[in-house]
Design a protein around this nucleic acid. Structure first.
Lengths: 109, 109
DNA sequence: ACTATACTCAACCATTTGGTTGACTTGGAA
DNA sequence: TTCCAAGTCAACCAAATGGTTGAGTATAGT
């Protein structure tokens, strides 16, 4: 069973999909509206939406002939939680680890 | 020019690479040490390290016949910053957006 | 009834990914 | 010097990605 973070980070690793998420943060959007800003076929855009949906980042519901998509921030929160594991490495103003490496480089013994 | 977030998220979308980052948080490691926990050829592991390196997540320096790799948390901080864009959607205890959608579903007009 | 819209599907394509192997180079230690 | 260990390289492979097209289905509006 591939970890959920795999799907989440993979979904986020594409600028088209990140832009779609941004638009979704303004509210529910049909797939066609999500596709419109990109020079891309509707089917291509729909496949991106499916990637987001399978990662649990959006939830789609059919309304008439439209498929309305809405943001589902749960996995984003999980991904953020994972990232903050390293907060201590960047939080204290500087890269503490990088500083250590540099110091060791300049004074190797 | 692909956005740096593309590389960062892509690098993070693989459990092997995430595990490598975890080990690196304990300090500098040669590639062979990073490869050892995984049932994988050394070359396979080295390619993962290269992906991390190209994403700027690790920095490698050669010491004798070893290549010591160290964590470079900068891109992690950037990715975290991007993720926190959505903090408002999950921070207030519940999924506010999801709640809105649900309410709309139960009372469609 | 007709038409345009919103989407689905199957097929295809080029590129990237994640992995392998076997041969090679280089450095450390015996 | 001789040998082992750490990496590198090139070549290969199967599978997934990101995109296309053309045809089809179903819904909404006129």
């Amino acid at each position: 069973m591939p970890h959920a973070l795999d799907d989440t980070f993979h979904a986020l690793a594409d600028p088209t999909r990140r832009a779609m998420l941004l638009r979704l943060s303004e509210g529910e959007q049909p797939i066609a509206a999500l596709a419109q800003p990109f020079d891309m076929s509707l089917w291509g855009a729909a496949k991106h939406v499916r990637v987001l949906e399978q990662a649990g980042l959006v939830k789609c519901r059919k309304v008439g002939r439209s498929t309305l998509c809405s943001l589902r921030p749960g996995p984003l929160a999980q991904a953020d939680q994972w990232l903050r594991q390293w907060e201590r490495f960047w939080s204290s103003g500087l890269d503490r680890l990088e500083a250590l490496v540099k110091a060791d480089k300049e004074n190797p013994r």
